[in-house]
């Protein structure tokens, strides 16, 4: 592991919760890389020419900050509780998530179910296609050469790196996304959650469980392998 600049966990421990900024706004980092200067130059030119406004950029950022894995988790928890919804979700992802107020414009959403016999995991070998509208921006590793290259070749080894060790009897299916078609994994409902309500169940549904690199959490809120 050579990359220590990606939100190191030790770093977070020093500062409490990573989103807890305390009473003071941290200073914005000054641009230092070539591409950071280019970002500023292009944005300024587009604003000067009236192609976009600064407000539109801010609003778009805010819109996307609101797209978080908790949205996908609501969809999964509903499917665990409501068999008719699950049937609709697996038949037509776009239509079903719209029932919960989630839009998936211009793209086809296909939801695939993990069972005791089949485990699905999603990848985009060609770029970074991801169900962003339900999970937010993809994690860095999803876009990495290592994940994109290896997942289709040795999925079990990749899953083991994520701490997910599946029995040999479980069939592993790798689903390669495209620019026009996005997949979302419906993880298995954990045992021991009978009688749980939707909100409670949704807390067990992690981002990685909807990518397929992990299972849903145990009823105790722990990772299971």
């Amino acid at each position: 592991m050579t990359h220590d600049d990606h939100g190191d966990e030790h770093h977070d421990h020093d500062h409490g919760h990573p989103h807890d900024h305390g009473p003071f706004q941290p200073d914005l980092k000054e641009p230092s890389e070539d591409w950071e200067f280019l970002e500023i130059a292009l944005r300024e030119l587009l604003i000067d020419k009236g192609v976009i406004t600064a407000r539109e950029v801010e609003d778009k950022i805010e819109e996307w900050d609101g797209k978080v894995p908790e949205n996908g988790a609501k969809v999964v928890a509903r499917a665990w509780l409501d068999p008719a919804f699950k049937k609709r979700l697996l038949a037509d992802g776009n239509k079903a998530v719209a029932e919960l107020g989630f839009e998936f414009p211009g793209l086809k959403l296909v939801v695939i179910e993990n069972t005791s016999k089949v485990h699905n995991v999603i990848v985009c070998t060609l770029c970074s296609c991801y169900p962003r509208a339900l999970l937010g921006l993809p994690p860095l590793w999803y876009k990495s050469r290592e994940y994109r290259s290896r997942t289709v070749r040795e999925p079990r080894a990749v899953l083991r790196e994520f701490g997910t060790d599946l029995a040999d009897s479980v069939e592993v299916r790798v689903v390669d996304s495209t620019a026009d078609c996005r997949f979302l994994v419906l993880p298995r409902r954990p045992d021991g959650t009978d009688g749980w309500n939707e909100e409670h169940l949704a807390k067990l549904v992690t981002r990685d469980s909807m990518i397929g690199t992990a299972l849903a959490l145990t009823p105790q809120g722990e990772r299971s392998s």
Partner: peptide, 27 residues
């Protein structure tokens, strides 16, 4: 087009997108 290529271990560190990155995404 790298699917199936050999590659090393996956760096699974989380990374909060920076403001510059989110601006590029937004634009």
């Amino acid at each position: 087009d790298m699917g199936g290529d050999a590659a090393g271990p996956i760096d699974r560190h989380e990374h909060e997108p920076s403001l510059a990155e989110r601006r590029i995404d937004a634009m």
